[in-house]
Nucleic acid binder design. Structure first.
Lengths: 237, 237
DNA sequence: AATTACAAACAAACAAGCCTGTTTGTTTAT
DNA sequence: ATAAACAAACAGGCTTGTTTGTTTGTAATT
C-alpha cells in the first residue's frame, strides 16, 4: 500500500510554482528570446497553467523582471563566495578572468543580451532590474578588491581593470552571435589574461613585495574553453 | 506660372522609396527596437504606404536585413576611407580608437544590439547579414593594418589589439543600457587609449625606429566625448 | 474525526487588439 | 495598352490580460 504523500502547505506550493516559472523563464529567454517566447510557452515549460502564472505574476514584464533578478542574485552570491575564497586562500587574475568568462559565457550574458533592448526602450522595466544589476556589480567589485588587497594594487586601478575585463567579455559574447570562431575567442581571452597578469605583476614591482619568481605563481591560470556557446541546447541549470 | 516638375523615372522612384524605407528602418531600429516597431511604423516614418513597402520588400525580415546591410556598408566605406587617410598622411592609435568609439556610439552598435537576439535565434536572418558583417571587419582590419605598417608593429598583433578594442567598445555600449555614468565610460576609454599608445610605442622601441620624442607625436589624440548616448533623440544621419 | 466555510492556488475559456502577409484597386511611367 | 510603383482593404493568427470555474489547504465548529 503506497503511503499518502504529505500535503504541501500553500506556502510551499507557491514557492514551488514560482521557482518553476522563474527557471522556465530564464531557459526560454536564453533559448528563444524575450520577444519570441510567450506566457503560454513559459507556463507550458514550467508545467503549470496560464491562470497559475497570472495568479503569481500579473504581467509578462513582471515575470521576466523577477526571473532576471533571480538569476542575477544567484550570480552575485557566487561572486561574494569567490571573494571570500580569495580572502582565505588567495587568488590570481587568471582564475578571476576564467571564472568571469565562464559565468558570463554560461548563459548569463546571453540572457542579458535578450533583455537589453527592452531595458533601452522600457523605462519601467529598466527601473525594475537596476537594483539587482547594481548588486551584481558590488559583487564584482568585492572580488577584484580582494585581489587588489592581496597583491598590493590600488583598488581604484583594480576596478578599472575589472571594468575593462567585463566590457571585453560582454563584447566578445555579443560578437559571438555573428562570429563562430573558437580560435579567435580563445586567442583574445589569452591575450587579455596576459595583460591582467602584467598589470598585477607590474604593480607588484612598484611595491617592494614581489620578486621575479612571483611571475610564475601569478601565471598559474589554466586554459579554459573559450568558445562562446551559441544557441544553447543546454536545459539543465 | 510654376514650371511642371520633371517626371521621375521608375528607377528613380524605386531608389527614392527604398532609400526612404531603409533610413526609416534604421531610425526605428534605434529608437524603438526591432520587436517594438511594425511594418506600419516603418511605412509611416518613410511617408509611404504599406503596400509600397511590401512591393519592394516582401517581408519584415527582408527590409530589416536590407537596412542593416545598408548601414554596415556605409560604415565599412568610412573605414576604408580612414585606412586610405592613414596610408597617405599617417595616423595614431588614439585617433583610431576615437573614430571607432564615435562610429559605434553614434548608433551603429546600438542598432546592432537590437538585432543580435534575432540573429541568435533566426538562422535565415543571420545568414543574410553575415556577408556585410564580414566586409565590415575587413574594413576594420584595413585600418589597423595601415597603422601597424606605419609604426612597424606586427600585423597579427595589431589585429589582436583591434579585436580587443572593438570588444571593449561593444561591451561598454552594451553596459550603457543599465548604467548611466559618463565619467565611468570616459575613464575606461582613456585607460584603453593609453594601453594602445603603449602597445604601439613598445613595438617601436623593439624596432630601432622610434625615439623618446616619438612618444609625444603618438599621443596627440584629443579627448572625445565618451558618454554613450542612450535613447537617441537624434534623427538626422 | 468529520463537516463546513473560506482563502489561496491553479486551470480553462473569453475577448480584444495588434501585426503580418495577401488581395484588390489606383496612379504613374513607358 | 501595359507594367511598375503605390495605396487601401481584407483576413487569419497570435498574444495578452480578464473572467469564470475547480482544486487544495486551513481554521473553526460540531
Amino acid at each position: 500500500m503506497k503511503p499518502r504523500s504529505r500535503r504541501k502547505t500553500q506556502q510551499e506550493r507557491t514557492a514551488d510554482t514560482t521557482l518553476k516559472l522563474l527557471n522556465a523563464t530564464i531557459d526560454l529567454l536564453h533559448d528563444r528570446g524575450l520577444y519570441r517566447m510567450s506566457t503560454s510557452d513559459i507556463a507550458e515549460a514550467a508545467g503549470v497553467s496560464r491562470g497559475a502564472l497570472t495568479h503569481h505574476f500579473s504581467s509578462k514584464e513582471e515575470i521576466i523582471a523577477a526571473a532576471i533578478s533571480h538569476q542575477l542574485r544567484d550570480a552575485t552570491a557566487g561572486l561574494h563566495k569567490m571573494a571570500e575564497g580569495i580572502r582565505q586562500s588567495g587568488g590570481t587574475s587568471d582564475k578571476i578572468v576564467d571564472y568571469l568568462w565562464q559565468m558570463m559565457n554560461d548563459r548569463l550574458f546571453y540572457v542579458t543580451m535578450e533583455y537589453l533592448p527592452e531595458a533601452r526602450h522600457n523605462k519601467t522595466f529598466r527601473s525594475a532590474i537596476i537594483p539587482v544589476v547594481q548588486e551584481f556589480h558590488a559583487g564584482l567589485n568585492s572580488v577584484w578588491a580582494e585581489l587588489a588587497g592581496q597583491v598590493g594594487v590600488e583598488v581604484e586601478h583594480a576596478l578599472v581593470l575589472m571594468n575593462a575585463t567585463m566590457c571585453l567579455i560582454r563584447g566578445m559574447i555579443a560578437q559571438s552571435a555573428t562570429r563562430d570562431d573558437p580560435v579567435y575567442f580563445e586567442a583574445l581571452l589569452n591575450f587579455w589574461k596576459e595583460k591582467m597578469r602584467r598589470e598585477f605583476m607590474l604593480k607588484n614591482d612598484e611595491h617592494p613585495v614581489g620578486s621575479a619568481d612571483s611571475k610564475q605563481s601569478l601565471a598559474d591560470g589554466e586554459i579554459s574553453s573559450a568558445a562562446p556557446r551559441h544557441q544553447g541546447a543546454m536545459r539543465g541549470r
